Amino acid sequence: MAALNIENVWKKYGNVIALRDVNLDIQDGEFVVLVGPSGCGKSTLLSIIAGLEDTSHGTLTLGDRDVTDLSPKDRNIALVFQSYALYPTMTVRQNITFGMENRKVPKTDQDKAVADVAKLLQIEPLLDRKPGQLSGGQRQRVAMGRALVRDPQLFLFDEPLSNLDAKLRVEMRTEMKKLHKRLGQTIVYVTHDQVEAMTLSDRIVVINDGVVQQFADPDTIYQKPANTFVAGFMGSPSMNFIEVEVTGKTGDITVVHHGEGEDIAFALGAARDELVPCIGDTVTLGVRPEHFRPMGEAGQTLSVNVDVVEPTGPDTMVVFSIAGKSLVGVLNAKFRPNEDDQVELSLSMDEACFFDATGTRIPGLGE
């Protein structure tokens, strides 16, 4: 195991900047997930860590070694690919031991390593099969086993579950979490799946256009997003954004949405006095879909027109409009209005976020 420090890393392809001044301090034994939209730079960063791509500027330190200019084979890093990258003509056992054979590891050590890894990953009955005889989940276990026998300082995973069906993805996610708990290895994991990012990680790196937007634990990412990009990207359905004008005075703050044909006022009182410097300005109010609740619960009362109702089983997703603004709420399954109904909802403002004109979250008092 080892900590990984990434300092001032840039990556340019001609005039195109793929990564811009990336700084990350990943702790020993930490599970860190890189997440962001397609083309944001997360896979490029993983390739740089692995040594498959050079940096244009910056340094990488693994443990006490500067690995910036080392070749992949000298970094003591294991990479698990999305495609599994198994040799189809070899058995599971041969796939796992292939790297050890090349490194001239004694046969007895190979046998012990395979036995230990096969028991850990529960693939003991599969050792004499070939990849074509395995399911997607079994192939992924074999790919992980091949990485584990190397006993590297750092594991890199490049969207390892994306080829699996939804049910198997959930099962493998659970297995990966258990595996990390048992091994305590340092892991950097790339995914486009927000649920994977939230459930697996100790901390999440959100990247957009080659720039790290936020690096924090899942709760902070979700509840206190650094900006509107993080707030809108993390969460499904994504956060609702409402333009509001800040009015009132210290101890009596109100924000007002100037909608089509009517103004909607959200009384905040003294609870959001961090907005006092913004009085007279327009800011963005961000509320999560689950912050809307059926009437009868505490919160701001809103009369809305129901546009779309989507039952999902455990919840009911409702698309509704208010003052010409379309919003999304996720409510309990028993709440089942009809489309075009006029209903009243309660909105909890306790966890609402506010963002300034640049899209940066305005921190609450005491943060």
Score class of each variant (00 low, 15 high):
R288Q: 11
T220G: 01
F266M: 12
G235Q: 02
G286D: 07
A270R: 14
E339P: 04
A265D: 13
L347G: 14
L268W: 05
S303R: 14
G269V: 12
L275E: 13
T312Y: 00
L345Y: 06
V304H: 07
H257L: 07
F335V: 10
Q300A: 15
D219S: 13
N227R: 01
A298S: 15
G280F: 12
G313K: 11
T312L: 14
V330H: 00
S238A: 14
G259E: 07
I322D: 01
T301H: 14
P218R: 06
T316P: 03
F233Q: 00
G261R: 07
T220V: 14
E274S: 12
E262G: 03
R288V: 05
A323T: 01
E297L: 15
I264T: 14
I221Y: 01
E297N: 12
E262V: 12
N332R: 13
D350N: 15
V343E: 08
K334T: 15
I279G: 09
L285M: 15
V343P: 09
K224D: 04
Q223H: 13
I264M: 11
P314N: 09
S238C: 02
N332Y: 02
T360K: 15
S346M: 07
E344C: 10
D315P: 01
S321T: 15
V330R: 13
P225A: 01
K325W: 02
P337G: 11
A352P: 12
S321M: 01
F241H: 06
E290F: 02
L285Y: 06
Y222D: 03
D341Y: 07
E310L: 04
C353V: 05
V308T: 12
V328N: 05
Y222E: 03
V328A: 00
G296R: 11
P337R: 11
F292K: 06
A357Y: 02
S238G: 15
T312I: 12
T228H: 00
M295H: 15
V256W: 07
R293V: 07
S303W: 04
P289W: 08
R361G: 06
G286V: 05
M234H: 04
F355Q: 06
R361C: 01
F354V: 10
L275Q: 11
N305Y: 05
S348V: 05
V318H: 09
E310S: 06
F241V: 02
V276F: 13
E274F: 07
P237R: 03
Q223G: 01
I279Y: 14
V319S: 09
G299Y: 11
E339D: 12
L345N: 11
F229T: 02
V244E: 02
P218E: 04
Q223L: 14
P225R: 04
G280E: 06
G324R: 02
K224I: 00
I264G: 00
G248I: 07
E290G: 05
V230A: 05
K224N: 09
E310W: 01
D263G: 08
L331K: 03
V318R: 06
